[in-house]
């Protein structure tokens, strides 16, 4: 037993050495003997349609490119994700990619990966760490920018968004999971954008955990405790869809009596946008698979990759949603 452990321990620095010393011809060092790349991917969960599309994109691209993908679902819990990453380190995968559930608390496990010589790519969500050498690159959306886009649209359409005509636009915010990067950044971006117009203010803000059920329950409470809600800003489509149900149950018409702005643009959300229930959606592109596999290959080949890769994203109004809805994949 002791002997085995010793061998295992001594093997780690050896692989590290092999990886770091390989440089240009690291195709041999970065991959298994049979030449295929093994990637460990620790997904957040399947909390929304967006996430499912993200998972699918990664799995399908990996299969198409012949990359051996080890996939795990953390069910929105950091400890599950840390466990998954540790097991990938033990299995000696070639590269680890993951979407951190929350922003903090990753230093230890990332350091373990670094010591084992396994490069790490962050997808979709960032980590809050001083030491940027712990990961190779971060591929994902700019959540602050998404929040800003949502806020800018509201500022441009402030007159129209003031549905009760009292001169003030009262916004209620449905936040994502507390502590998650998209929740923090979208809130920040939105707040900074609406600061341009004094008539817009956030009356209430609470987490709906990115789920329909959460969005519905929080919105039910807001409709009773807040007077004159003009706009709902939901951090994802699913909470917005939950809010629609709560608004309809209150006898109001979503899109007319209350304007809804969401982020993501999944199919169900786009359908609601085309129907006029949602007023504006900022896209958050989940199809990261091709870009991720491309980056993984570059990293393993020892090529330089930029520290931050932003995915291409757009926004949708109701008219645009009607046009693109038929060929929406997710």
């Amino acid at each position: 037993m002791l002997k085995k452990t010793l061998i295992a321990v001594s093997a780690i620095p050896l692989t590290t050495l092999a990886l770091t010393s390989c440089g240009s011809d690291s195709a041999a060092g970065g991959t298994d003997d049979d030449g295929t790349i093994t990637m460990g991917f620790a997904q957040v969960g399947a909390e929304s349609g967006w996430r499912t599309a993200n998972t699918k994109s990664i799995q399908e691209t990996a299969e198409a490119e012949g990359i051996d993908l080890k996939f795990s679902d953390a069910q929105q819990k950091q400890e599950n994700q840390i466990k998954a990453i540790r097991s990938y380190i033990q299995q000696k995968v070639d590269i680890i990619a993951f979407s951190p559930v929350v922003e903090t608390g990753w230093d230890t496990v990332l350091l373990e990966a670094k010591r084992a010589g396994i490069p790490v790519i962050l997808t979709d969500r960032a980590v809050d760490s001083e030491d940027t050498s712990l990961y190779e690159t971060f591929l994902g959306s700019d959540f602050v920018l998404e929040g800003e886009k949502a806020g800018e649209w509201l500022v441009e359409n402030a007159a129209e968004a003031d549905v009760d005509g009292d001169g003030d636009v009262n916004v209620v915010e449905l936040q994502g999971t507390t502590g998650a990067a998209p929740a923090i950044d979208r809130k920040t971006g939105f707040e900074s954008a609406i600061a341009a117009d004094d008539s817009i203010s956030i009356g209430a803000s609470q987490t709906g955990d990115f789920t329909r059920d959460g969005g519905k329950k929080v919105m039910e409470a807001f409709l009773k405790s807040e007077d004159g809600i003009d706009v709902v800003f939901a951090h994802n489509d699913d909470m917005g869809l939950g809010a629609i149900e709560a608004i309809e149950a209150a006898g109001l018409t979503p899109g007319k009596d209350v304007k809804i702005i969401t982020i993501d643009a999944v199919k169900d959300g786009m359908a609601a946008l085309a129907e006029g229930k949602i007023s504006f959606i900022v896209e958050c592109n989940p199809l990261l698979g091709p870009q991720l596999m491309d980056l993984a290959k570059k990293v393993l080949a020892g090529e330089e990759v930029p520290e931050r890769v932003v995915t291409e994203e757009t926004t949708f109004t109701q008219e645009q949603a009607k046009e693109v809805l038929p060929e929406r994949q997710y």
Binding site: Q175, T178, G179, A204, S205, Q206, T207, K217, V218, E220, A221, F222, K224, S225
Partner: peptide, 15 residues
């Protein structure tokens, strides 16, 4: 209790 949190406006960070 679950309804109270958004009704009385407890911040998401401390709920």
């Amino acid at each position: 209790l679950a309804t109270t949190i958004p009704t009385i406006g407890i911040p998401a960070e401390t709920n």
